[in-house]
Protein backbone atom coordinates (compact mmCIF):
# COMPACT_ATOMS: atom_id res chain seq x y z
CA UNK A 1 0.00 0.00 0.00
CA UNK A 2 2.57 2.51 1.12
CA UNK A 3 4.91 1.09 -1.46
CA UNK A 4 2.27 1.72 -4.09
CA UNK A 5 1.76 5.25 -2.90
CA UNK A 6 5.46 5.95 -2.85
CA UNK A 7 5.94 4.76 -6.37
CA UNK A 8 2.90 6.75 -7.44
CA UNK A 9 4.34 9.87 -5.87
CA UNK A 10 7.75 9.37 -7.38
CA UNK A 11 6.06 8.68 -10.70
CA UNK A 12 4.20 11.97 -10.45
CA UNK A 13 7.33 13.81 -9.40
CA UNK A 14 9.31 12.29 -12.25
CA UNK A 15 6.62 13.44 -14.64
CA UNK A 16 6.85 16.97 -13.32
CA UNK A 17 10.64 16.90 -13.51
CA UNK A 18 10.52 15.68 -17.09
CA UNK A 19 8.22 18.52 -18.05
CA UNK A 20 10.65 21.00 -16.53
CA UNK A 21 13.64 19.29 -18.12
CA UNK A 22 11.92 19.41 -21.48
CA UNK A 23 11.39 23.14 -21.11
CA UNK A 24 14.97 23.67 -20.07
CA UNK A 25 16.22 21.62 -22.98
CA UNK A 26 14.52 23.97 -25.40
CA UNK A 27 15.96 27.06 -23.74
CA UNK A 28 19.59 25.85 -23.67
CA UNK A 29 21.19 22.40 -24.06
CA UNK A 30 21.51 20.85 -20.62
CA UNK A 31 25.12 20.19 -19.63
CA UNK A 32 24.71 17.02 -17.69
CA UNK A 33 28.03 15.69 -16.47
CA UNK A 34 28.83 12.17 -17.59
CA UNK A 35 30.08 11.44 -14.10
CA UNK A 36 33.30 9.71 -15.07
CA UNK A 37 36.52 10.44 -13.22
CA UNK A 38 36.67 11.80 -9.70
CA UNK A 39 37.48 15.07 -8.00
CA UNK A 40 41.22 15.83 -7.83
CA UNK A 41 42.39 16.30 -4.24
CA UNK A 42 44.34 19.44 -3.28
CA UNK A 43 47.40 17.32 -2.39
CA UNK A 44 47.32 15.71 -5.83
CA UNK A 45 47.07 19.04 -7.61
CA UNK A 46 49.91 20.42 -5.48
CA UNK A 47 52.09 17.41 -6.36
CA UNK A 48 51.75 17.92 -10.12
CA UNK A 49 51.13 21.65 -10.51
CA UNK A 50 54.73 22.81 -10.98
CA UNK A 51 54.33 25.43 -13.69
CA UNK A 52 55.32 29.06 -13.18
CA UNK A 53 54.07 32.03 -15.14
CA UNK A 54 55.85 35.32 -15.93
CA UNK A 55 53.70 37.05 -13.27
CA UNK A 56 55.14 34.68 -10.66
CA UNK A 57 52.04 32.51 -10.32
CA UNK A 58 53.13 29.08 -9.16
CA UNK A 59 56.41 30.09 -7.49
CA UNK A 60 57.10 28.05 -4.34
CA UNK A 61 58.36 29.65 -1.11
CA UNK A 62 62.15 29.81 -0.93
CA UNK A 63 65.26 31.75 -1.89
CA UNK A 64 68.77 31.31 -3.19
CA UNK A 65 71.85 33.46 -3.79
CA UNK A 66 74.15 33.76 -6.79
CA UNK A 67 76.94 32.25 -4.70
CA UNK A 68 74.86 29.25 -3.66
CA UNK A 69 73.78 28.85 -7.24
CA UNK A 70 77.36 28.73 -8.46
CA UNK A 71 78.07 25.77 -6.18
CA UNK A 72 74.99 23.84 -7.36
CA UNK A 73 75.84 24.69 -10.96
CA UNK A 74 79.41 23.42 -10.71
CA UNK A 75 78.23 20.18 -9.09
CA UNK A 76 75.15 19.43 -11.15
CA UNK A 77 75.21 21.41 -14.41
CA UNK A 78 78.73 22.35 -15.53
CA UNK A 79 79.56 18.91 -16.97
CA UNK A 80 77.19 19.64 -19.84
CA UNK A 81 76.76 23.41 -19.82
CA UNK A 82 80.38 24.35 -19.03
CA UNK A 83 81.69 26.10 -15.91
CA UNK A 84 80.62 29.47 -17.31
CA UNK A 85 77.44 28.32 -19.04
CA UNK A 86 79.30 28.33 -22.34
CA UNK A 87 78.17 24.77 -23.22
CA UNK A 88 80.42 21.72 -23.40
CA UNK A 89 80.59 20.08 -26.82
CA UNK A 90 77.19 20.38 -28.46
CA UNK A 91 75.27 20.93 -25.20
CA UNK A 92 73.26 24.15 -24.92
CA UNK A 93 74.96 27.48 -24.26
CA UNK A 94 73.23 29.34 -21.41
CA UNK A 95 75.25 32.54 -21.20
CA UNK A 96 76.28 35.37 -23.50
CA UNK A 97 75.21 36.19 -27.03
CA UNK A 98 73.81 39.66 -26.31
CA UNK A 99 73.52 41.70 -29.48
CA UNK A 100 73.80 38.73 -31.84
CA UNK A 101 70.13 38.14 -32.65
CA UNK A 102 70.23 40.06 -35.92
CA UNK A 103 73.64 38.68 -36.89
CA UNK A 104 74.46 35.88 -39.25
CA UNK A 105 74.95 33.33 -36.46
CA UNK A 106 72.77 34.40 -33.56
CA UNK A 107 73.57 33.06 -30.10
CA UNK A 108 70.21 32.49 -28.40
CA UNK A 109 70.83 32.14 -24.66
CA UNK A 110 68.90 32.90 -21.46
CA UNK A 111 70.50 36.33 -21.40
CA UNK A 112 70.31 37.20 -25.06
CA UNK A 113 66.96 35.67 -26.05
CA UNK A 114 64.69 34.40 -23.27
CA UNK A 115 61.89 36.89 -22.55
CA UNK A 116 61.04 35.83 -18.99
CA UNK A 117 63.04 34.75 -15.94
CA UNK A 118 60.11 32.57 -14.86
CA UNK A 119 60.87 30.20 -17.73
CA UNK A 120 64.35 29.59 -16.36
CA UNK A 121 63.02 28.63 -12.94
CA UNK A 122 60.17 26.58 -14.40
CA UNK A 123 62.31 24.66 -16.86
CA UNK A 124 65.12 23.89 -14.40
CA UNK A 125 62.57 22.64 -11.91
CA UNK A 126 60.64 20.47 -14.35
CA UNK A 127 63.36 19.03 -16.57
CA UNK A 128 66.89 19.58 -15.25
CA UNK A 129 69.43 18.14 -14.61
CA UNK A 130 68.96 16.19 -17.85
CA UNK A 131 68.50 12.58 -16.72
CA UNK A 132 67.71 13.48 -13.10
CA UNK A 133 64.73 15.79 -13.41
CA UNK A 134 62.68 17.13 -10.48
CA UNK A 135 65.49 16.38 -8.02
CA UNK A 136 66.36 19.96 -7.04
CA UNK A 137 64.86 21.74 -4.05
CA UNK A 138 63.05 25.06 -4.42
CA UNK A 139 66.00 26.87 -2.79
CA UNK A 140 68.47 25.22 -5.17
CA UNK A 141 66.32 26.24 -8.11
CA UNK A 142 66.13 29.85 -6.89
CA UNK A 143 69.91 29.80 -6.44
CA UNK A 144 70.57 28.34 -9.90
CA UNK A 145 68.26 30.90 -11.49
CA UNK A 146 70.06 33.70 -9.63
CA UNK A 147 73.44 32.34 -10.77
CA UNK A 148 72.40 32.10 -14.41
CA UNK A 149 70.96 35.62 -14.36
CA UNK A 150 74.21 36.83 -12.80
CA UNK A 151 76.32 35.09 -15.43
CA UNK A 152 74.17 36.86 -18.01
CA UNK A 153 74.81 40.27 -16.34
CA UNK A 154 71.16 40.66 -15.33
CA UNK A 155 71.67 40.67 -11.53
CA UNK A 156 74.65 41.57 -9.33
CA UNK A 157 77.02 39.14 -7.59
CA UNK A 158 75.38 39.56 -4.18
CA UNK A 159 71.83 39.03 -5.46
CA UNK A 160 69.46 36.73 -3.58
CA UNK A 161 66.42 35.58 -5.54
CA UNK A 162 63.14 34.76 -3.78
CA UNK A 163 59.47 34.48 -4.51
CA UNK A 164 59.08 38.01 -3.15
CA UNK A 165 61.50 39.79 -5.50
CA UNK A 166 61.00 37.56 -8.56
CA UNK A 167 58.62 39.97 -10.30
CA UNK A 168 61.29 42.73 -10.18
CA UNK A 169 63.40 40.82 -12.73
CA UNK A 170 63.35 42.10 -16.28
CA UNK A 171 64.98 40.18 -19.09
CA UNK A 172 66.87 42.10 -21.81
CA UNK A 173 64.88 40.58 -24.69
CA UNK A 174 61.40 40.78 -23.16
CA UNK A 175 60.30 43.07 -26.01
CA UNK A 176 61.78 40.86 -28.69
CA UNK A 177 58.71 38.78 -29.48
CA UNK A 178 55.44 39.38 -31.26
CA UNK A 179 52.45 37.20 -32.08
CA UNK A 180 52.29 35.21 -35.31
CA UNK A 181 51.56 37.69 -38.10
CA UNK A 182 51.89 35.43 -41.13
CA UNK A 183 48.41 36.20 -42.40
CA UNK A 184 49.42 39.85 -42.72
CA UNK A 185 53.13 39.83 -43.53
CA UNK A 186 52.89 36.80 -45.81
CA UNK A 187 49.63 37.75 -47.45
CA UNK A 188 51.31 37.52 -50.85
CA UNK A 189 51.40 33.72 -50.45
CA UNK A 190 47.65 33.59 -50.93
CA UNK A 191 47.51 33.70 -54.74
CA UNK A 192 44.43 33.22 -56.85
CA UNK A 193 46.11 31.88 -59.95
CA UNK A 194 49.74 30.84 -59.58
CA UNK A 195 51.69 30.86 -62.85
CA UNK A 196 51.36 27.61 -64.85
CA UNK A 197 53.12 28.32 -68.20
CA UNK A 198 56.35 30.06 -69.22
CA UNK A 199 56.81 31.27 -65.63
CA UNK A 200 60.50 32.14 -65.90
CA UNK A 201 63.11 32.29 -68.65
CA UNK A 202 66.18 30.46 -67.30
CA UNK A 203 66.78 28.16 -64.38
CA UNK A 204 70.19 27.41 -62.91
CA UNK A 205 71.36 25.32 -59.98
CA UNK A 206 72.54 27.54 -57.11
CA UNK A 207 73.65 24.95 -54.59
CA UNK A 208 73.72 21.23 -54.06
CA UNK A 209 73.42 19.08 -50.93
CA UNK A 210 76.08 16.76 -52.32
CA UNK A 211 78.72 19.47 -52.05
CA UNK A 212 78.09 19.83 -48.32
CA UNK A 213 77.92 16.05 -47.91
CA UNK A 214 76.51 15.73 -44.40
CA UNK A 215 73.91 13.00 -45.06
CA UNK A 216 73.63 11.43 -42.51
CA UNK A 217 76.84 10.30 -40.76
CA UNK A 218 79.10 13.33 -40.92
CA UNK A 219 80.07 14.92 -37.63
CA UNK A 220 80.09 18.41 -39.05
CA UNK A 221 77.12 20.40 -40.13
CA UNK A 222 74.54 22.90 -39.03
CA UNK A 223 73.09 22.71 -35.56
CA UNK A 224 69.38 22.24 -35.18
CA UNK A 225 67.46 22.84 -31.98
Amino acid sequence: MSRFRNSLISGLMLGTLLVFAGGALQAEPAKKPIGLGRVALPEEIAAWDIDIRPDGQGLPPGKGSVKEGEEVFLNQCAACHGEFGEGAGRWPVLVGGRGTLDKDNPDKTIGSYWPFASTTFDYIRRAMPFGNAQSLTADETYALTAFLLNMNDIVKDDFVLSRENFSSLKMPNVGGFYDDDRETTEKAFWKKNPCMKDCKPEVSVLNRARVIDVTPDSKTGPKVE
Binding site: F177, D179, D181
Partner: peptide, 12 residues
Protein backbone atom coordinates in the same frame (compact mmCIF):
# COMPACT_ATOMS: atom_id res chain seq x y z
CA UNK B 1 63.82 34.50 -35.14
CA UNK B 2 63.59 36.91 -38.06
CA UNK B 3 66.31 38.92 -39.77
CA UNK B 4 65.81 42.06 -37.64
CA UNK B 5 66.55 40.14 -34.43
CA UNK B 6 62.96 39.98 -33.28
CA UNK B 7 61.02 36.74 -33.17
CA UNK B 8 57.54 35.52 -33.91
CA UNK B 9 55.90 33.62 -31.09
CA UNK B 10 52.87 31.33 -31.09
CA UNK B 11 53.40 30.32 -34.73
CA UNK B 12 51.13 27.35 -34.27
Amino acid sequence: LLADGRARRFTW
